[in-house]
Design a protein around this nucleic acid. Sequence first.
RNA 1: UGGGGAGUCGUCCAGCGGUAGGACACAUGACUCUGGAUCAUGGAACCGGGGUUCGAGUCCCUGCUCCCCAGCCA
Length: 611
Amino acid sequence: MDARDAERGAPGPPHRPPRDAGGPKGSPDFAEPPDSAATADPAKQPDSAESIDPAAPTDFIRTIVAADLREGKNGGRVHTRFPPEPNGYLHIGHAKAFSLNFGVAEEFGGQCNLRFDDTNPVKEDVEYVESIQADIRWLGYDWGDRLFHASDYYEQLYAWAQTLIGQSKAYVCDLSPDDVRSYRGTLTEPGKNSPFRDRSVEENLDLFRRMRSGEFDEGASTLRAKIDMSSPNMNLRDPIMYRIIKASHHRTGDTWCIYPSYDWAHGQSDALEGITHSLCSQEYEIHRPLYDWFLDQLALPQRPRQIEFARLNLSYTVMSKRLLLQLVKDGLVTGWDDPRMPTLCGMRRRGYTPEAIRAFMGKIGMAKRDSTVDLALLEHCVREDLNKRAPRVMGVLRPLKLVLDNYPEGQVDEMELVNNPEDPSAGTRQVPFSRVLYIERDDFREEPPKGYFRLYPGNEVRLRGAFIVRCTGVVKDATGEVAEVHCTYDPATRGGNAPDGRKVKSTIHWVSMAHAVEAEVRLYETLFSVPNPGDDEATGGDWKSVLNPNSLAVVTDCKLEPSLRDVQPGWYCQFERLAYFSVDSDSAPGRLVFNRTVTLRDSWARAEKKG
RNA sequence: UGGGGAGUCGUCCAGCGGUAGGACACAUGACUCUGGAUCAUGGAACCGGGGUUCGAGUCCCUGCUCCCCAGCCA
């Protein structure tokens, strides 16, 4: 438990001093929870999920790991790794992979390494290296001092490649990229041997050395494993181990101009790190024979076992890095951390909590079949978590003036509101009440539809935590729009309870006009308007055509209760009756910007829609 | 039409020869100073066809469907 828990209960919402941005790309540092001695947080807003302790899941992978342990394999060790390529930001699908790897290690008393699979300098960047680490930490996982890079192993990999050449199991091939492709054959026809396949060991060694020294141009030659050009498994048709790339690498600079392929680097890196279980997504299943083949040739004592699982798909979003990159590059979103993105930084900015995401990971299961998880499940997890800890506050998004004709002009009454009905220890706060208020436009209808029991002429509602009021009439503007609603309040109902025991069907939120704080609020919907935007058949091959035009709605001039004046980026809350929100990093002193994290379930909206 | 995977409520996951279960979603009701939350109830599935068995989602045969592999990407 966090020590900050002890600070709960003090009135008033949390505040915290402005700080320098700390995250990648100038995104705000969300790691600091609100802190202020005077106004302790009504809800704990921790910076990571370290305290999470979900019931140990069981699935086919954990079953295998447990069996390996039982059989005494690997000397009783469990050691996993998460191997991202630093070529993009992590998304919720990666979270499935790394929570599996870190989770399995934790549960079996083992360790999990973080290893950057940085074998392609043209696609990789330190920006990604940094964001990846920040995102994993945010979810509460820790790799200790075991941060590695495939590039740490370049020299060893090179030596091992020479070993394979020495065994006549690898050769330098001078075929052009086009020729390599045509010699490879097709899915149904075997390939042909490269004319360079039978070069002598000495010649291969010499050529390989000269490849490394930069003597040849990009594309001029490759080092290939000598396996079987007629294998039905395309990966075994003399796969490329090294290619010439004359680009500077974010870690090794210009020391290398040949770079190992994924297949050649991965298993060997696993072995070098003593990985026992190499958990990866299913598209690598067909690579497993090659993974094992390399390990066999080198006769390494350590034998990692690759196990594959189905990657995560989420409805109404895309998970492909290529598409996400394109969204960013084409300016279809504001960046990798756009709150509509399925990236972890996007979700963080939107207000999703690490606890919610971890809970989600526990609920989606682990299997091998292709599947698409309903976004509603993720949203459920976010609500479930925030419901327990988000402070309740009042904010009016689309203000409508409400005048209490019998309330004394100039009078201000401080009303005591509970911060979180789900958590008594969150305490209460004072909210100023006066004659002229703002209420939500949606909470008034001049002509109420059937089943509507909010405000309408003649009806009585409760103003949350304040008084019961009755609508006496409206004032319209020149266009016939309702400009103000007039009510009388019942002074005997202070606090919201009617001494005569009469029931009012509705309670609505309000903000005192004289005390209101203005804010911009960004309302999000799904980025795509169809459940399966990544499916070409569903989109006619044009995924951009199914972008949701309503994915972002900016509402300005929202009116918030004054206690929110100084909240800082990353702080989250529930605007009662509407949704959970978090303060966006675009906020500045005197300019509040909120993101709608996830709406509350709204059974009235649904009922009204159904008619 | 090569090879590798996979098919269980609308969705996701369990079930490993013995009454098909959970979660989300959906519906209905209760409760409520958030039409929130909570609680209760309900509908809802074994890809098809054969076979083995007292008994098959599970084993066998067969068919069908879906996903992945022809990057010097990972």
